[in-house]
């Protein structure tokens, strides 16, 4: 298999890439790691007229902490996230479960976020940690909260001429912990179910902030806002986490498919929410 014909623009700067996108219009697509886009092009599900390769742009490959945030550039590969010392909680937990080792060597975190595949791992992690997407367009840069960014299956609120240049993930200042529990049939398969959890504790040990998001059980990565609201202000406990798990299960509308029945997947959401929150609390208490 091979893609249909396209013109390739190898951009050397972000400005050049954005300009090329403006010129190409709807038929233009950005290419970073290509681990989703190239297979889609080979299967002729995607057939861009112009492909704008951003891999040669300098300065987009940093993953570092700055001003209380973990900043991830557009060319940071999943393998770089796995290897980074700057990560924390759910981000660190999820990284080794994205795709397989070879795909992680090429695929980028920002590309995966921009792709908005509801079976993708990163958007759940970003929803749980309250991240922002940094987009650059012809009129400059803007920041979009991940909850506003993710708009539907394979759909974001990114403007037609905007490029995702980075992510900003707030690093908790106090005690915190996170988890990403993913059930997959084999390494590299999409999640059957995955749950991202994030907890921050105050000085009394009560939950100061909570994040909970689900992968592969809805047409979009799902932030479980009512469970997050329930958790905040409470002392961590098994009973509390069981209650949050019920809300998570209620927020999941999985479908019967080759990976399992809807009822079973909802039960996995329940179990993984309890386990994930317990792991996050344990990590926070030890931090």
């Amino acid at each position: 298999m091979f893609p249909s014909r396209f013109d390739l623009v190898v951009a050397q700067t972000v400005a050049e890439a954005v300009e090329a996108k403006v010129d190409a219009g709807e038929g233009g697509r950005f290419l970073a790691g290509g681990q989703s886009l190239i297979p889609m092009m080979k299967m002729r599900v995607a057939f861009p007229e112009t492909l704008i390769d951003i891999n040669r742009i300098a300065g987009l490959d940093a993953i570092e902490r700055s001003n209380g945030h973990l900043q991830v550039g557009a060319l940071v590969r999943h393998a770089d996230v796995v290897a980074s010392d700057a990560t924390f909680g759910a981000v660190a937990a999820a990284a080794p479960w994205v795709a397989d080792p070879l795909v992680r060597n090429r695929g980028t975190m920002c590309g995966s976020v921009a792709h908005c595949d509801p079976e993708g791992d990163w958007n759940s992690v970003l929803l749980a940690t309250g991240a922002e997407v940094i987009a650059q367009g012809p009129s400059g840069e803007r920041s979009i909260s991940i909850a506003d960014f993710v708009d539907g299956a394979f759909t974001s609120t990114l403007g037609e001429d905007e490029l995702v240049v980075g992510l900003r993930i707030p690093v908790p200042s106090g005690r915190s912990g996170g988890a990403y529990l993913k059930l997959e049939r084999k390494i590299g398969d999409y999640a059957t179910v995955a749950v991202a959890s994030h907890l921050e504790l105050d000085d009394s040990g009560a939950i100061a902030a909570a994040g909970l998001a689900l992968t592969s059980v809805n047409p979009i990565n799902t932030k479980v806002a009512d469970a997050e609201a329930l958790l905040v202000g409470q002392q961590p406990s098994e009973e509390l986490f069981a209650e949050a798990a019920e809300l998570a299960a209620a927020a999941a509308e999985p479908r019967d498919d080759v990976r399992g029945t809807a009822a079973w997947k909802r039960q996995v959401v329940r179990t993984y929410t309890k386990r994930g929150l317990a792991a996050a609390a344990q990590q926070a208490e030890g931090s």
Partner: peptide, 27 residues
Amino acid sequence: CDTTSCGACTVLMDGTPVKACTVLAAQ
């Protein structure tokens, strides 16, 4: 597989293993 699953097409690109069915020659 030709779909980024099997790794039969693995090569080292600047020392790093990648699936060559999912990289453009131009890249």
